[in-house]
Design a protein around this nucleic acid. Structure first.
Length: 726
DNA sequence: GCGATCAGCT
DNA sequence: CACAGCTGATCGC
């Protein structure tokens, strides 16, 4: 193509303005000395084109996608046009990518982009200040770098700590007979909710089974359940009796991966109690988080109130008849519970209302753990080993909607007793198990997700039921409303309102934005199934807009060398906003491969947006590539070798929220360089930050929270708790 | 040969 | 560590 940057020509050729208009010609000095480049997180370099100096998208035909400033909840001119400004029912989708929607208030017409991204008007408003303030997203820290303590923090801390070590699954058999995975009791006759209560109770018992009580988990609710179980002792779960107390204890901390170490060192219960942090270090527990966690738990073991005999005697798997009365009774007993640690308040203590189940916070690991054997060192292996033709018998709590027969993102656990399957978004870990031979009923999802499921997996449209955003529908007698989850295109969170009046909000994966709380005002949420991916204060990343601006400026800063190839990582779907905004702001086309284009065509981008993509590699020096190809310099070197003639410098952007955990707090990115390869790690996240989770939970104010992500390991929230307590 | 699943990896 | 995958091996049809 004529507009290709010539491989061997050092002279920068001005490309057609539509493609490379902002691309800077050479800087006056040190053009070849990469290390002398200005760090991009400083003052933005101005474009020669005065109309394109900042992140504000240039006027474009799709400018009408912006909400007018008169719309109360919408602002500002710097909101990317790919994002919509509110949410409302998409009742029909025409050829145009925008849909005009009449809300109840006719004056409040809003436009929704089919892409489905949300308008983060507040983010947009914050943009300038965030840049100036080093991407401060508004959270306050103390000198130690911790988020200031308040009840909301405690709420989430508690949420996290409670999510540790408890395995909340409900049992669903493939056959008529349904057994509790722990005590093997036949629970076929029980209702769905009762089964969950039963299984969860068993798991609570297993958690409390070690001879001494785990100091990290003085959950009064579990205590109350233990007391309830006294009245109804049945056989001990086999799983529990076969394991050594040390291993059980270890597992209860979510540190099963260190089982091998403890076995190798032949650490028995007495030895365990005498271990010091130094000992732990010497036997190979080098990670700070797990070590602290163990030390903390050990100190709890040495406490006099730990009553092992009693715990064992009481830790029998109970049948499911945990009645409201019993719960009330146990609740009244709680006041005198000796096991309670005031430092570990239940998250639900901060919320009004009575819990609907004995356990208010459930661990809902992404993978079931109930059937793990002692030798398993990773949950993944355990799952594989225990998988039943790919469909595990034990379905995590977060896949079940209490009070309904519905399943969410539960295709790994297909059963014949359910015919309503919801899919929150098209990411593998959520649709895994779904194949084109699916014949278990209907799949409910957004239009974008339905298109992808149809195209990529081959599910026929007859099996797919599109849920219109913001529109309440009745499915099997249950009101269902979905909202834009602001995660990836097509992602939704789903509100279930069963007849029992106990509404359940399943967030799917989501990135919080202020509008979300508006949708939910008025609805009392009983259970919140929450995406807790970054439920840890260390994950406190900037708003997406700030990161986008950082990337734009970084590209501008690095682009003075005309033989620079820019790579932006992305998933199958996800991170589109990042590279689309880069294209729009820099007014340069972005290369994507043909299969990616086909995918993007399903996402509901406008024609104007789509014009920024090209499948002709030579038309662009900004390429979108799979995220993992940027994971290491080794891989980047591989890419670099492919383009030796054409490019002399590779600048890659890895957008992931995990970046924020390992860099300084709220840093907009990390610049790493090896020779002619530069790699930026930028904290562009499509999950909520800890701060956002806090805010969301506070606003939704549910009675019960069911985490959808298992936060085990060094990053575990329990470790965070121990750090806060000590 | 193909689809589905699993194991290992980043 | 692991967001959300990819790749290659294996198995059953």
């Amino acid at each position: 193509m004529s507009n290709t940057v010539e491989d061997d020509d050092d002279d920068f050729q001005i490309p057609p303005s539509s493609q490379l208009s902002i691309r800077k010609p050479l800087q006056p000095t040190n053009a070849n000395n990469i290390s002398h480049r200005r760090p991009p997180n400083k003052k933005p370099r101005l474009s020669r084109n005065p109309g394109k100096e900042n992140v504000t998208p240039p006027p474009s035909p799709d400018a009408d996608l912006f909400c007018s400033s008169s719309t109360p909840h919408c602002s500002l001119d710097c909101v990317p046009s790919s994002v919509d400004c509110s949410i409302g029912p998409i009742s029909s989708l025409g050829e145009d990518d925008q849909v005009l929607i009449d809300k109840e208030d006719k004056d409040d017409c809003i436009k929704v982009n089919r892409e489905g991204y949300l308008c983060n008007s507040v983010e947009a408003r914050l943009l300038k200040s965030t840049i100036r303030l080093g991407f401060d997203s508004g959270i306050h820290e103390d000198d130690e770098g911790f988020v200031e303590s308040n009840s909301e923090l405690d709420v989430l801390i508690k949420l996290c700590s409670e999510s540790e070590g408890r395995s909340g699954e409900c049992s669903l058999g493939n056959d008529d007979s349904i057994q509790c995975p722990l005590c093997s009791m036949d629970i076929s006759a029980l209702s769905e909710e009762q089964r969950q209560v039963h299984s969860n109770t068993c798991l609570d018992k297993s958690y409390n089974q070690p001879p001494e009580q785990d100091s990290l988990r003085k959950c009064e609710n579990s205590s109350s359940l233990i007391e309830e179980s006294i009245d109804d002792p049945v056989q001990l779960p086999q799983l529990i009796t076969d394991l050594s107390p040390v291993l059980i204890w270890l597992r209860s901390l979510g540190l099963a991966k260190y089982e091998d170490v403890f076995i190798r060192e032949e650490i028995d219960w007495d030895t365990l109690k005498s271990l010091t942090e130094e000992d732990l270090l010497s036997i190979g527990i080098t990670s700070l988080g797990p070590r602290k966690k163990i030390v903390n738990a050990l100190s709890g073991l040495r406490e006099p109130f730990a009553s092992s005999a009693e715990a064992q005697a009481q830790s029998h798997c109970t049948s499911s008849h945990v009645t409201e009365r019993q719960r009330d009774t146990s609740t009244t007993r709680k006041a005198s519970e000796p096991k309670k640690l005031t430092a570990n308040k239940l998250i639900t203590e901060f919320f009004p209302g009575q819990a609907t189940e004995g356990t208010k916070i459930r661990k809902a690991p992404k993978e079931p753990v109930a059937e793990k054997s002692p030798s398993d060192s990773s949950s993944r292996r355990a799952v594989r080993r225990n998988s039943n033709n790919g469909k595990s018998k034990v379905i995590p709590h977060w896949n079940c909607i209490p009070g309904t027969p519905f399943r969410v993102d539960a295709f790994k656990y297909l059963t014949r007793d359910c015919c309503h399957w919801f899919l929150t978004h098209f990411h593998l870990d959520h649709y895994q198990g779904l194949t084109k031979s699916f014949s278990h009923g209907k799949i409910y999802c957004s239009l974008v997700t339905a298109k992808l499921v149809n195209m990529k997996i081959g599910i026929p449209w007859e099996r797919l039921q599109v849920l219109d955003i913001g529109q309440k529908v009745n499915i099997g007698g249950i009101d269902v409303t979905c909202f834009n989850a602001n995660h990836c295109p097509g992602s939704i969170m789903i509100l279930f309102e069963p007849a029992n009046g106990k509404a359940v909000l399943h967030t799917g994966d989501f990135r919080y934005c202020e509008e979300m709380s508006n949708w939910l005002t008025g609805s009392h949420i009983s259970s919140l199934i929450l995406d807790t991916t970054y439920c840890n204060p260390q994950y406190d990343f900037p708003k997406q807009e700030a990161v986008i601006q950082f990337v734009v400026e970084a590209i501008q800063a690095e682009a003075f060398n005309p033989k620079t190839l820019f790579l932006i990582g992305s998933y199958t779907i996800g991170k589109e906003r990042l590279f689309l905004e880069v294209a729009r702001v820099l007014r340069e086309k972005i290369y994507i491969n043909p299969s990616k284009l086909k995918l993007l065509e399903c996402l509901g981008f406008s024609k104007e947006d789509m014009q920024w993509f090209t499948v002709k590699e030579e038309e662009s020096h900004i390429h979108v590539v799979p995220l993992w190809t940027l994971a290491s310099f080794k891989r980047l070197k591989h890419i670099s070798n492919r383009y030796t003639n054409r490019y002399s410098l590779i600048v890659a952007f890895s957008p992931t929220g995990w970046t924020s955990g390992k860099t300084k707090k709220k840093s907009p990115g990390r610049r790493l360089q090896q020779g002619t390869i530069i790699r930026y790690e930028v904290p562009y996240s499509e999950h909520s930050s800890f701060t956002e989770l806090k805010e969301f939970v506070q606003k939704v104010s549910p009675e019960v929270i069911i985490p959808s992500v298992n936060n085990d390991g060094p990053d575990s929230a329990a470790a965070m708790v121990s750090m806060l307590v000590t």
